[in-house]
Simulated assay, not measured.
Amino acid sequence: MLTQTTSRVLEPSDLDAALAVLDRDPVANAFVAARVQIAGLDPWRLGGEMWGWYEDGILTSMCYAGANLVPICATPRAVRAFADRARRAGRRCSSIVGPAEPTAALWQLLEPRWGPAREVRARQPLLVTDRVPDAVAPDPYVRRVRKDELETIMPACVAMFTEEVGVSPLAGDGGLLYQARVAELVGSGRSFARFDADGNVIFKAEIGAATDRACQIQGVWVAPEHRGNGVAAPGMAAVLRYALADVAPVVSLYVNDFNTPARRTYATVGFREVGAFMSVLF
């Protein structure tokens, strides 16, 4: 029995306690919760370690340390403990991402050792909705991407990622991990697109993280030649319809605060702001 404040790497036997922490904010924690529900806490299956912070023997905060470093319900003391552990381990992640306040505190402690970052996005509004909009008709041509269309959708996914993150997902391992992730989303029926008559992608989006409480839309992209033509809002309404009917009762996403067109689109289809994320990109 732990009787004082301490941190440690969680083990598979800690799963119920970890899920209870994640369930305290099912929207903000959807990304990590989805991974834990599938993989448990085994580091090999999870793709990283889960660090836990205990107060008087109770697990109160966590931090996922994998390809991303993600603070979860992290109190100020927990953030300091996670920063100490991260400094000792050295940087292995490509980003730090999570709720803005603890993420900012974590980065402040890590920047002297890990900095400089390639880019810091200090405020990314976290948006949610639980209904299909009344004012925007879903685009009837947006549909699930078929498995045999993987090669067709991939260039659009690469273009979106490169535009959003600033580096190509094909760098490093030649894109093997990224292509596997896109294939996973297509295979699970969570990749959506509108194609033109020649098979070119006009609009696309995916339902990434998904639990029975909430899911997260990601990878929203409109082909450059179709931007400003009213494609995005009906496309988003269509993806929302699928998400709410088939995946979860609440749909979320987070967006860069400087992306005015995207924020306008999301407001049009009924998303409301409930918080903010922060991303530190390396």
Rank of each mutant, 00 (worst) to 15 (best):
P26Y: 07
P26N: 06
P26M: 06
P26A: 08
V27M: 04
V27G: 03
V27L: 06
V27A: 05
V27C: 01
A28H: 04
A28I: 02
A28V: 05
N29G: 08
N29D: 04
A30F: 11
F31P: 01
F31L: 14
F31K: 09
F31A: 10
V32P: 07
V32I: 09
V32W: 05
V32K: 02
A33W: 01
A33R: 08
A34T: 03
A34Q: 05
A34R: 01
A34S: 14
A34D: 05
A34C: 10
R35F: 07
R35K: 14
R35Q: 09
R35L: 12
V36R: 00
V36W: 00
V36K: 00
Q37N: 13
Q37W: 11
Q37L: 15
I38S: 15
I38P: 09
I38H: 14
I38C: 15
I38Y: 13
A39N: 05
A39H: 05
A39L: 07
A39C: 14
A39F: 02
A39E: 03
G40E: 03
G40N: 02
G40R: 03
G40Y: 02
L41C: 12
L41E: 02
L41F: 14
D42K: 10
D42W: 05
D42Y: 05
D42Q: 07
P43L: 15
P43H: 15
P43I: 14
P43A: 15
P43N: 15
P43Q: 14
W44K: 14
W44I: 12
W44G: 08
R45S: 05
R45P: 00
L46V: 01
L46N: 01
L46R: 00
G47V: 06
G47M: 10
G47Q: 05
G47Y: 07
G47A: 10
G47S: 10
G48I: 06
G48A: 12
E49D: 12
E49W: 02
E49T: 11
E49I: 11
M50F: 13
M50T: 00
M50L: 15
M50H: 11
W51N: 05
W51Q: 09
G52K: 05
G52C: 12
G52A: 14
W53S: 08
W53P: 06
W53M: 09
Y54K: 05
Y54M: 10
Y54A: 09
Y54R: 06
E55K: 11
E55R: 13
E55V: 10
E55F: 10
D56F: 12
D56V: 11
D56H: 13
D56A: 15
D56Q: 14
D56L: 12
